[in-house]
Amino acid sequence: MTALPATTTGKKLGLVIDLDTCVGCQACATSCKEWNTSGYSAPLSDHDPYGSDPSGAWLNRVHAFDVGEGATSRTVHFPRSCLHCETPACVTVCPTGASYKRAEDGIVLVNPDTCIGCKLCSWACPYGAREYDYADGVMKKCTLCVDRIYNDHLVPEDRVPACVKACPTGARHFGDIGDETSAVSKLVRERGGYDLMPELGYKPVNKYLPPRPRRDASTAAIASTPAEKVGAPGNSAIEKLFAWADKALSR
């Protein structure tokens, strides 16, 4: 089933990540690691965890970028996980069929029981979303928390990905991007949600909401009150203020 599903339900579950709101706190990354290390992909192994070169398999990573230069520059925090692409080569290159895209909701998964750890899918992913688990010998990736979102054991409002639930600023939104009426689709329309590197043709489902324009001198709606004249005697301002403040104000 390495072939992409021939027909789909039209449902495209995914994440919408608001770069205007993300503070780079890493909560989504650790909560993801925490849920998933004991979840569908268990374990997400760590190497040399207390040593000189600690690393491990994570399904979500948060970068910080400097964007632009000087006065108009900005700092943008940028979470990166699987985008659950519509036409991803990571699935079609897989020799075993371990990598597949669910017909029902579009989630791209690795079957940890059949993956041979050839790593080819990680080469095929432009977004760095697949991480090989050296100890487990298989590829790991964001599951869109498939074992949460349909999980009867969780209360309905908790049936969202771990990262979405944890995100303290609410910068992560989960829903059906295939459904034009969904809240996430609306958000994408209103805020100009975009695809990462659309030119590669993977058709990511996840969308990013761009940082909003800054509201500083260049865009200020309010003109600053004219400055006092240079060298104006401070006293005149005080007298003016005193005259104004001399109203009778009852307690």
Partner: peptide
């Protein structure tokens, strides 16, 4: 996708030691 705001340079990677 941030190129429209100017040159994009990494400020901090998500992890200080190399990952897979």
């Amino acid at each position: 996708g941030l190129g429209r705001f100017g040159k994009v340079r990494p400020l901090e990677a998500p992890h200080t030691q190399p990952n897979f």
